[in-house]
Write a protein that binds this DNA or RNA. Structure first.
Lengths: 340, 340
DNA sequence: TTGTAAGCGTTATCAT
DNA sequence: ATGATAACGCTTACAA
């Protein structure tokens, strides 16, 4: 591990480089940003001088003069939720080692706060923005994209086309429900997420489509509204039971809710998966170690974060980029089994 | 929700304010930083002008000229782990609304990366630094603190005295083990965390002390080395079983490991808590919804993050501050019960 | 292609 | 207490 460089009080500036390489500041600036063609020999001279003197451009001077800030804004909604954290992790790890530093802001799921946070970020003149999830209204996002390069992860924004990375929630939910159907289940309950959240809506749709394709009638009584938290799972089971509807399987909108449901079942002496199968969504770390290990739909959160960072950096530098596909993946564990 | 201010192309600068308030730039700067006494009338004139024109100091100009960057560096070790995330959440939420913005860097538990990240942060001239966990060697931290205001959370650094926020791991582990003892358990196994990690060491010590105070002989065979992950819990149970040692209770170094242990027990047909009691550490969200809900030791992560942010801001502004106490708290749920 | 010089918005050092 | 004025390090017309 390298020790810090000797405290050479003065920082080396482009002036130093210019002198060393026998060119003017402007030329140094030019090779630095390769904004204008520069003779090959001078260019290498400059490059060498920079290396030799261990030059690091001063971000503040740079920004003040109107250049890049080498800063990327990241607007999350809630540090601490497994899926979004996975994304942040990916973004962060991909940005490490590049010249870009991430500034975080947390919207706490409140549009006002999110909006204020956005203002802060823009005020900081970030070179680009990564939106992690969130529910900011469209119109504001619209002019945001016109002001600076943006990428959204874990959220589909219709008008943003190639600047959105998300998994197909409808498809994931379809797979989950279909898995249950293939195991012979016909009475499948669904615990939704926050009801007006796009992810919840799509997951509900996927559930419906699976039923439909299997010619199973959709039953309103099989739906319980949840909030993506554990308590929702508990309450949903109580509700379901109180409706005295038979069900042999549950598709929960996320893992945490699935855990809650599993707990409520346990309290009622109903076995999983013998009596009831459960499937979650997210495949968070804990799913593998639940009792029994939870079948779930995996979203490649970290990979999405990485891709988002890559895409944004390219976008900033006006390079072309391609966004890979992020298919949801069914992870079959032990909480689901054939219906008796 | 307010719409963005009209796009008044030019930003308002201290020059504008100076003109408006009929003073010089310097005076404006003075009231801005209240670095030097200014006549009351001029001061109010300036203040009013600033309000009227909606002035926002330019961070970059400011930093370039040698002032504060209004930026705080946060070095985490791994976004995605419940305890540290809780801290980050607290820090973030407390910084929202202040004039400080957080720049994150992730050390990924590797000292080299952490060190590089630190360099980046320092290079960005952050006004202060929050170290979230981590294992950077002392000597480097030492001169770090001399260079800029620092606060460490979730880690005890001896020489840092009042700039460290952490819970007493030894005490928490003591409470956990003691709880088991009070329930009549005498054969208590412990699954450690990463063995040379300070938290692991302290938790092991707390465990030992509890045994000792209850006059229970410490038995090396009751210790299994783990890695703070779920797999460790699974393996530990297998090891324990293979040693054919009796045990009626387990204290796991964290919740995730406890989940793993609980799963392995389930596979062996050993009931929790009827046959074996389990207690974890961290009280992460999922602990409440495990089956059965996991007894655990809660660390007030978010509160610690908040306090850290507060302390750092005060430290930066040379105000005095006080660091509250963060006692670990035993959360008793259903995974522990009296020994049969 | 390259150099000169004028900003960018603050803070800090002088005088006054 | 206040006002000029010189940095701060870089980008970017504008000239050459």
């Amino acid at each position: 591990m390298k020790k810090p460089a000797a405290p050479s009080r003065k920082n080396v500036t482009i002036n130093d480089i210019a002198r060393q390489a026998n060119v003017s500041k402007s030329t140094v600036s030019r090779v630095l940003n390769d904004s204008t063609p520069v003779n090959e020999d001078k260019r290498t001279a400059v490059l060498e001088a920079m290396k030799a003197m261990n030059f690091e451009p001063n971000i503040f001077a740079r920004s003040l003069a109107g250049g890049q800030t080498k800063t990327i804004g990241i607007l999350t909604q809630n540090i601490g939720s497994p899926f979004y954290d996975g994304i942040s992790q990916g973004v962060l790890s991909r940005l490490t080692g590049t010249s870009y530093s991430p500034i975080f802001a947390d919207g706490q799921w409140k549009p006002e706060i999110g909006y204020a946070a956005l203002e802060t970020l823009v005020g900081r003149k970030v070179d680009g923005l990564i939106l992690v999830g969130g529910r900011l209204p469209m119109d504001q996002l619209q002019d945001l994209r016109e002001r600076l390069p943006c990428v959204a992860v874990g959220r589909k924004i219709d008008e943003w086309e190639s600047q959105c990375l998300y998994v197909d929630n409808e498809e994931g939910a379809f797979q989950a429900t279909n898995h249950l159907i293939e195991l012979g289940h016909r009475k499948i309950a669904h615990i939704t997420g926050i009801i007006d959240h796009p992810d919840s809506i799509h997951r509900l749709e996927g559930y419906k489509r699976a039923l439909q394709e299997a010619s199973i009638a959709f039953d309103e009584d099989m739906i319980c509204e949840g909030l993506f938290d554990g308590e929702s799972g508990v309450k949903a089971i109580e509700t379901l039971l109180s409706r005295s509807k038979d069900f042999t399987a549950i598709f929960a909108a996320n893992d945490l809710t699935a855990f809650g449901a599993r707990l409520a079942l346990y309290r009622q002496g109903i076995s999983v998966p013998e009596d009831v199968s459960i499937i979650g969504f997210d495949d968070q770390l804990e799913a593998s170690f639940a009792t029994p290990p939870l079948t779930s739909v995996r979203q490649p959160a970290k990979e999405m974060g990485e891709a988002a960072a890559d895409a944004l950096v390219k976008l900033i530098n006006k390079q072309s980029y391609e966004i890979p596909d992020f298919p949801p993946e069914l992870i079959i564990r032990e909480s689901t089994q054939e219906v008796k």
